[in-house]
Amino acid sequence: MRVAYAGTPEFAAAALASILAAGHVVPLVLTQPDRPAGRGMKLQASPVKQLALQHGVPVVQPVSLRLDGRHPADAAAAREALLAAAPDVLVVAAYGLILPEWVLTLPRLGCLNIHASLLPRWRGAAPIHRAIEAGDVRTGITIMQMDIGLDTGPMLHVAETPIGADDTTATLHDRLAAQGAALVLRSLDDAAHGRLHPVVQPTEGVTYAHKIEKAEAAIDWRQPATVIERRVRAFDPFPGATCRVPTDGAAETVKVWAARLATGDVPAGAPGQVVAVDADGPCVACGDGALWLTRLQRPGGKRVSGREFLQARPVPTGLVLG
């Protein structure tokens, strides 16, 4: 199989590595343009681009694929590259650009998408984050034949995985990336032998996983403790749940990387009030229930346990967090 590939982050790099290892010919990779990253804000290639270059695979990085859009030259160059690559199929995983119709119809077997949810639940940009945030107990990978809609195409293969009580977006991401890398090989093998059996997505149960915004990071202590605890896990590693901790007449923004639901006899308090402190860290009252904050990070610091945080920055009971 001649398998062109479109993807950008680590999630997509896992599947590309699997396709290369399986012996498929990858004549072309599409990925997002290099972006500034790190403290020095130097341009950095995406994980997919880095992997492609290691294997000598040609890479194109259009800003857009719309021939009638704001960057028609980029789109036209990408079209010429795809035509020259003559792929049997285009595999897409977390690419980051909308594929117009000319892309979807160019490969003779169409475009296959590796999507990190059990469609039609969590169509859209952030299915892993939103599944954890919503309290879903299971998720998975769907290999989908792409159409012009947003994750609306027929399903080809589905694999499930449970969401553990301590799963974060980081841990679930890694598990789903490996699952997707294995499942896409099955779909490619079936495509090569004419064994694909597309199944139309159900019309019921459709939800949308909207893109994660930095503004969502701030904890609203008026929410129930169960909701906040899920959001802490959903926002690890990005954008990281945050709260404001008063200090010497000012306040600093602290990231909360882990929290545990308080059980037993915990003093009552207003939302955001520190109602207890022990070796695990501070316990904060919420709109319903309370949370022990067990892993935190001060500005410019590193992630530390609740105990280490309190040693460096005491938090008395009665203090109200923002």
Results as ranks from 00 to 15, higher is better:
5 Y>R: 05
7 G>T: 13
8 T>Y: 06
16 L>V: 06
20 L>R: 14
21 A>I: 03
27 P>K: 00
28 L>T: 00
36 P>S: 07
37 A>M: 15
41 M>W: 02
43 L>F: 10
44 Q>I: 10
50 Q>G: 02
51 L>D: 03
52 A>S: 05
53 L>M: 10
53 L>D: 13
55 H>A: 15
55 H>R: 13
59 V>A: 06
59 V>S: 03
60 V>G: 02
61 Q>G: 05
62 P>T: 07
63 V>M: 14
68 D>P: 04
72 P>N: 02
75 A>R: 00
84 A>C: 00
92 V>C: 13
93 A>M: 11
95 Y>F: 15
96 G>F: 12
99 L>S: 03
105 T>E: 12
110 G>C: 06
111 C>W: 03
115 H>T: 06
121 R>N: 11
126 A>R: 08
128 I>R: 08
133 E>D: 10
133 E>C: 07
135 G>T: 06
136 D>G: 06
137 V>P: 01
139 T>A: 09
153 G>C: 09
156 L>I: 14
160 E>M: 11
161 T>Q: 12
166 D>H: 07
166 D>K: 08
169 T>H: 13
169 T>D: 09
171 T>H: 13
173 H>W: 06
175 R>E: 10
178 A>Y: 03
178 A>D: 11
180 G>K: 04
183 L>S: 01
193 H>V: 14
195 R>A: 15
198 P>G: 08
199 V>N: 06
208 Y>C: 00
209 A>V: 05
223 Q>I: 04
231 R>W: 05
234 A>R: 12
234 A>E: 08
243 C>K: 01
248 D>W: 01
250 A>V: 10
251 A>H: 11
251 A>I: 04
253 T>H: 01
258 A>E: 14
258 A>Y: 07
261 L>Y: 06
262 A>F: 05
265 D>E: 15
267 P>R: 03
267 P>S: 12
269 G>S: 09
272 G>C: 11
272 G>S: 09
280 D>S: 14
281 G>R: 10
287 G>R: 15
292 W>D: 03
297 Q>E: 14
299 P>V: 13
303 R>D: 11
305 S>I: 04
307 R>L: 12
309 F>P: 02
309 F>L: 08
311 Q>A: 15
313 R>F: 11
314 P>V: 02
